[in-house]
């Protein structure tokens, strides 16, 4: 009887152990299937035919296109897109792309580079050739970029959807000055959206203050392969205000005194203008705004799975110890 009871108990222990193994196996199958089903939605578009310029690794930079004699970017990966609407650089020059900056298939780029999370761009310059005659009449004396009466510049950039699905995007502009109290910078600006054919700031004859850039936002959807490009212009008019007197001080304008004051202040203080352009994009699978980037599943379930697994492990270990003790007793 005693032997029969011991055998019964032993069979019961084996059954419990098998049950635990089965439960754990089932849980693992569920986890793996869920894992792979989610991964395929976010796999990036396969890149082919790129010429890698570096060894590879976390900061790999690859060439995505080459500029032709007309300034148009011919993608190395065929199947891209429209002509870019900005001033061409030297034919044959490359447009570079940092793979690590892109998880969604959304590029923000200019004629030199595809932007990353922080990119120095060329809205301003270290030296200016105001008349286009090759003579630089404004030149920085250090590593700072500068502006002065008569200087101006255009900066163009674009956004592009390289994914196979629609993307939602938001683009924001921030502009601010660092100045002593009571001082302003007489700099005008405007932003043109080539894709929409409209001005986001200013107009054909309208040049508002450059601080009007601050807070300008564009939201929308960009379809696969689509490019939207923009041009930001700024200028500091050389002769502003009314002319004082013809002939006597020819060329003197009422605002020359203010501009001169700024130039003299600049000897000891930096009178700065900052412009920042931010973009972000995500897959448009919710038809709504920016998604919640956190896990949408109830964590309670996963905690429960972890607890059950742990308890099962303890139970299995307890059974094993118990059987071993019994065996040693029987022995």
């Amino acid at each position: 009887m005693k032997q029969f009871d011991a055998k019964q108990k032993k069979n019961k222990g084996h059954f419990t152990l098998w049950l635990t193994v089965a439960v754990l196996a089932a849980l693992e199958l569920c986890s793996v299937s869920v894992l792979f089903s989610q991964m395929t939605s976010y796999a990036t578009v396969q890149k082919r035919n790129y010429i890698s310029l570096t060894e590879g690794g976390p900061n790999t930079t690859v060439v995505i296109g080459q500029r032709d004699a007309n300034g148009e970017i011919t993608p190395v990966n065929p199947g891209a897109s429209k002509k870019a609407h900005y001033a061409p650089k030297a034919p044959g020059s490359f447009v570079r792309y940092d793979e690590n900056s892109d998880k969604v298939g959304f590029w923000t780029y200019d004629e030199n580079t595809v932007w990353s999370t922080h990119t120095d761009i060329e809205i301003f310059r270290y030296q200016h050739d105001n008349n286009g005659d090759g003579v630089f009449t404004v030149v920085s004396s250090d590593e700072d970029k500068v502006f002065a009466p008569g200087t101006e510049n255009d900066y163009s950039w674009a956004i592009k959807n390289t994914n196979t699905v629609n993307l939602r995007y938001v683009m924001e502009v921030e502009a601010y000055e660092v100045l002593p109290d009571g001082i302003y910078l007489p700099i005008d600006g405007r932003i043109y959206n080539h894709y929409a054919g409209t001005y986001m700031v200013g107009g054909p004859e309208e040049w508002p203050d450059v601080l009007d850039f601050d807070g300008v936002t564009e939201e929308g959807t960009i379809s696969p392969g689509c490019i939207k490009d923009y041009t930001l212009q700024w200028r500091w008019v050389f002769e502003r205000g009314e002319q004082i007197q013809e002939g006597l001080y020819k060329g003197d304008y009422t605002e020359d005194f203010y501009d001169t004051m700024l130039g003299n202040l600049a000897v000891d203080d930096d009178l700065e203008l900052h412009i920042i352009i931010r973009t972000k994009a995500w897959i448009d699978d919710e038809g709504g705004g920016e998604p919640d980037t956190s896990d949408s599943y109830n964590p309670t379930i996963w905690i429960a799975v972890a607890v059950i697994s742990f308890v099962s492990l303890l139970f299995v270990a307890f059974l094993a110890l118990k059987d071993r003790k019994k065996q040693s007793d029987e022995d």
Binding site: V104, D120, E122, F147, Y155, L271
Partner: peptide, 22 residues
């Protein structure tokens, strides 16, 4: 739990300049 987080690509371009000295 990590795979269920949505991807968002962000980029930022910045530039600054100062008044040239007289």
């Amino acid at each position: 739990s990590g795979t269920f987080a949505k991807y968002v690509t962000k980029a930022e371009g910045e530039d600054q300049a100062r008044v040239a000295k007289w």
